[in-house]
Protein backbone atom coordinates (compact mmCIF):
# COMPACT_ATOMS: atom_id res chain seq x y z
CA UNK A 1 0.00 0.00 0.00
CA UNK A 2 1.35 3.30 -1.01
CA UNK A 3 1.26 6.04 1.56
CA UNK A 4 0.58 9.46 0.14
CA UNK A 5 3.58 11.75 0.24
CA UNK A 6 1.54 14.35 2.10
CA UNK A 7 0.90 11.87 4.97
CA UNK A 8 4.61 11.07 5.19
CA UNK A 9 5.42 14.75 5.29
CA UNK A 10 2.84 15.31 8.01
CA UNK A 11 4.20 12.43 10.11
CA UNK A 12 7.69 13.80 9.63
CA UNK A 13 6.64 17.26 10.77
CA UNK A 14 4.79 15.75 13.73
CA UNK A 15 7.85 13.74 14.76
CA UNK A 16 10.00 16.81 14.39
CA UNK A 17 7.68 18.84 16.60
CA UNK A 18 7.75 16.10 19.21
CA UNK A 19 11.54 16.02 19.17
CA UNK A 20 11.72 19.82 19.41
CA UNK A 21 9.22 19.78 22.27
CA UNK A 22 11.16 17.12 24.16
CA UNK A 23 14.45 18.84 23.48
CA UNK A 24 13.08 22.17 24.70
CA UNK A 25 11.87 20.55 27.88
CA UNK A 26 15.22 18.94 28.57
CA UNK A 27 17.04 22.11 27.60
CA UNK A 28 14.97 24.27 29.94
CA UNK A 29 15.82 21.94 32.80
CA UNK A 30 19.46 22.17 31.85
CA UNK A 31 19.26 25.92 31.68
CA UNK A 32 17.94 25.81 35.24
CA UNK A 33 14.61 27.57 35.28
CA UNK A 34 14.47 30.25 37.99
CA UNK A 35 13.28 29.06 41.37
CA UNK A 36 11.22 31.06 43.84
CA UNK A 37 10.88 30.97 47.61
CA UNK A 38 8.04 32.96 49.14
CA UNK A 39 8.29 34.67 52.53
CA UNK A 40 4.80 34.70 53.97
CA UNK A 41 3.40 34.42 57.50
CA UNK A 42 6.96 34.51 58.86
CA UNK A 43 7.98 31.35 56.99
CA UNK A 44 10.10 30.53 53.95
CA UNK A 45 7.96 28.43 51.58
CA UNK A 46 9.21 25.96 50.62
CA UNK A 47 11.46 25.67 53.64
CA UNK A 48 13.76 23.39 51.68
CA UNK A 49 14.44 23.51 47.94
CA UNK A 50 16.74 21.56 45.63
CA UNK A 51 18.01 23.19 42.43
CA UNK A 52 20.75 22.62 39.87
CA UNK A 53 23.99 24.56 39.90
CA UNK A 54 23.62 27.77 37.93
CA UNK A 55 20.06 28.38 39.14
CA UNK A 56 18.99 31.87 40.10
CA UNK A 57 16.81 31.70 43.21
CA UNK A 58 14.43 34.56 43.95
CA UNK A 59 12.93 35.25 47.38
CA UNK A 60 9.68 37.24 47.38
CA UNK A 61 8.33 38.94 50.53
CA UNK A 62 4.55 38.71 50.83
CA UNK A 63 4.33 39.83 54.48
CA UNK A 64 3.52 43.28 55.87
CA UNK A 65 6.84 43.10 57.68
CA UNK A 66 10.28 43.33 56.07
CA UNK A 67 12.44 40.23 55.91
CA UNK A 68 16.00 39.47 54.92
CA UNK A 69 17.67 36.46 53.36
CA UNK A 70 20.92 35.99 55.21
CA UNK A 71 23.22 33.07 54.58
CA UNK A 72 24.58 31.32 57.65
CA UNK A 73 27.98 31.12 55.94
CA UNK A 74 27.97 34.77 54.89
CA UNK A 75 27.82 33.94 51.15
CA UNK A 76 24.74 36.07 50.53
CA UNK A 77 22.98 38.84 52.46
CA UNK A 78 19.94 40.54 50.97
CA UNK A 79 19.48 43.50 53.27
CA UNK A 80 15.92 44.46 54.22
CA UNK A 81 13.31 43.33 51.68
CA UNK A 82 10.13 45.33 52.10
CA UNK A 83 6.60 44.08 51.37
CA UNK A 84 6.33 42.85 47.74
CA UNK A 85 10.07 43.22 47.31
CA UNK A 86 12.34 40.47 45.96
CA UNK A 87 15.96 39.38 46.20
CA UNK A 88 17.78 37.07 43.80
CA UNK A 89 21.03 35.14 44.02
CA UNK A 90 22.59 32.80 41.44
CA UNK A 91 24.02 29.59 42.89
CA UNK A 92 27.02 28.40 40.90
CA UNK A 93 28.47 25.76 43.20
CA UNK A 94 26.84 22.59 44.46
CA UNK A 95 26.34 22.46 48.20
CA UNK A 96 23.87 22.92 51.03
CA UNK A 97 23.12 26.52 51.93
CA UNK A 98 21.30 27.39 55.14
CA UNK A 99 19.72 30.82 55.42
CA UNK A 100 17.65 32.79 57.90
CA UNK A 101 15.88 36.14 58.20
CA UNK A 102 18.13 38.40 60.27
CA UNK A 103 15.08 40.30 61.49
CA UNK A 104 13.10 37.18 62.45
CA UNK A 105 15.60 34.45 63.31
CA UNK A 106 12.76 31.98 63.76
CA UNK A 107 12.54 31.95 59.94
CA UNK A 108 14.97 29.38 58.57
CA UNK A 109 15.38 27.68 55.19
CA UNK A 110 17.71 25.38 53.29
CA UNK A 111 18.77 25.37 49.66
CA UNK A 112 20.46 22.30 48.16
CA UNK A 113 22.37 22.97 44.95
CA UNK A 114 23.23 19.85 42.92
Amino acid sequence: MRIPRSRVALAFVGALLLIVALYTRVASADETAPAQIVMKDFKFTPMSLTVKAGTTVTWANKDDEPHTVTSDSGLFRSGAIDTDGTYSFRFERPGTYHFTCSIHPQMVGTLVVQ
Binding site: P66, G79, S102
Partner: peptide
Protein backbone atom coordinates in the same frame (compact mmCIF):
# COMPACT_ATOMS: atom_id res chain seq x y z
CA UNK B 1 17.20 47.01 66.87
CA UNK B 2 17.41 44.33 64.20
CA UNK B 3 15.60 46.70 61.83
CA UNK B 4 18.53 49.13 62.22
CA UNK B 5 21.18 46.61 61.21
CA UNK B 6 19.38 45.09 58.21
CA UNK B 7 21.50 46.89 55.59
CA UNK B 8 23.92 44.65 53.73
Amino acid sequence: GEHDVADT
